[in-house]
């Protein structure tokens, strides 16, 4: 007779991890269904979405622009260091624009907002869960999705791509400025390089990535906050879990979207 699996058997842990992961996927899917169901309650979520959009947009603008400016500047400096004497200067324009628009803009903004917005959403909803505010909303016959989740998700889906556009513009601008500090490069050289390998799809690709990242930054923390366990420890765990999970999902989405949209 085959020996029964014991708790020290690695298969038990792997099985539990798989089941736990599937349960999370199932519950996130249910939350997404709730979001679609709640969309018809426009009167409830639209005013709240405006407030959230303002919080995300204005509240995150400074850090987003700061990070993208530094990313653009450093990319230009490194390009100047590596290519001097071996490649034409206009290549710096190509490198800065393509790096910022295709990768650094959306990913850096995504990771920063996963911390800034994701942590806030998970902590807010987690606190509402442990103080029974979400139960109270349900007890009044109202949908927590249309009051709490949809405004946050919709605001993120609109504002995060807008922030990425700002980040792309400022990152490229900072790259141009930095390149001109270390290389005998003119605006025309930079523009020539930028246009040489430019495809209009690159801009769409940046926005598509931003949109997918926005979904991860909003839906996952809302889910983590919504399913928070008991007490302050539960809120802390949800908040940490929200930031880590949404960051990992952003990196995974980055790979998948690059493969699907650029290499298929």
């Amino acid at each position: 007779m085959a020996a029964a699996a014991t708790t020290s058997d690695p298969r038990v842990y792997i099985g539990r991890a798989i089941l736990g992961g599937m349960a999370h996927v199932g519950r996130v899917s249910m939350l997404v269904v709730e979001i679609f169901r709640g969309l018809k309650e426009v009167r409830i979520w639209v005013p709240r979405a405006f407030d959230e959009a303002w919080n995300i947009g204005v509240g995150s603008l400074f850090i987003v622009l700061l990070v993208s400016a530094f990313a653009g500047g450093v990319t230009a400096y490194q390009a100047g260091y590596q290519f001097t004497g071996s490649l034409p200067y206009y290549v710096v324009g190509t490198l800065v624009v393509e790096s910022i628009v295709l990768e650094l803009g959306p990913v850096l903004v995504g990771l920063i907002l996963a911390g800034r917005i994701g942590a806030r959403y998970a902590a807010e909803l987690g606190t509402m869960r442990v103080t029974e505010q979400i139960d109270a909303l349900e007890s009044l016959g109202r949908s927590p999705a249309s009051h709490l989740i949809i405004p946050r998700v919709v605001a993120g889906l609109i504002m995060i791509p807008v922030l990425v556009v700002f980040a792309d513009i400022v990152g490229v601008g900072a790259g141009l400025w930095a390149a001109k500090q270390v290389l005998p490069l003119t605006n025309a050289d930079f523009t020539y390089g930028a246009q040489y390998f430019w495809h209009p799809f690159d801009a769409y690709y940046s926005l598509i990535k931003a949109f997918f990242f926005a979904a991860a930054i909003t839906i996952i923390p809302c889910y983590m906050g919504f399913t928070t366990g008991q007490g302050a420890e539960g809120v802390g765990r949800s908040t940490t879990g929200a930031v880590v999970s949404s960051s990992v999902i952003i990196l995974l989405l980055d790979v998948v979207l690059a493969k699907v949209l650029l290499n298929s």
Partner: peptide, 12 residues
């Protein structure tokens, strides 16, 4: 049904 929560559960 009206439900009165232990700590009020008011929306802060």
């Amino acid at each position: 049904i009206g439900y009165v929560f232990q700590n009020g559960a008011l929306f802060d």
